[in-house]
Amino acid sequence: MKKFLFISLIFALLPFFTFAQKDKETKKRAEVECNANEHLNKCVESLRPQGYRFLKSYKLEGNASKPLEYEYTLSKGTTYFISLQHNPDVKLKVILYNEDGREEASNYNKKLDKYYPSVEIRCQRTGVYKITFSQESKTDFCAASVLGFKR
């Protein structure tokens, strides 16, 4: 009888533990989500001094294990600018790949082990390029990026 009572009590209380965990996750997600707009505004501001025109924005809320991937058609003869903004503890890498899968540009300098807040590319060939964003440390991240252009 005591065993039966004990088991029943566990089953009865189980949903409450699950909800508490979900609440925790939802709160964490909300905390991660809330800064993306702020990062986006800073990215947009960074286009100005360089004379770039706005093209696209990316709100980046990622998992450390999987890069975020996007595609965009770049045009020959145009210079593009990818600006990044994120929380200080994040090491965000952006890589631009051409249609052949070759790396064309990145904000990360391997020799200096340095991450730059932006990358500029003069497109040599019109085509669909892949832009990937990945986080080098092991936490989830919240960031933003903006793509701009000028001739």
């Binding site: 093209l55 696209k56 595609e71 058609t73």
Partner: peptide, 19 residues
Amino acid sequence: FDILNAMPDPIEIVDLVKS
């Protein structure tokens, strides 16, 4: 939507036309 998002923004063409 992936293809739609990869489409170039027409502003690039209009900018060239202006130039």
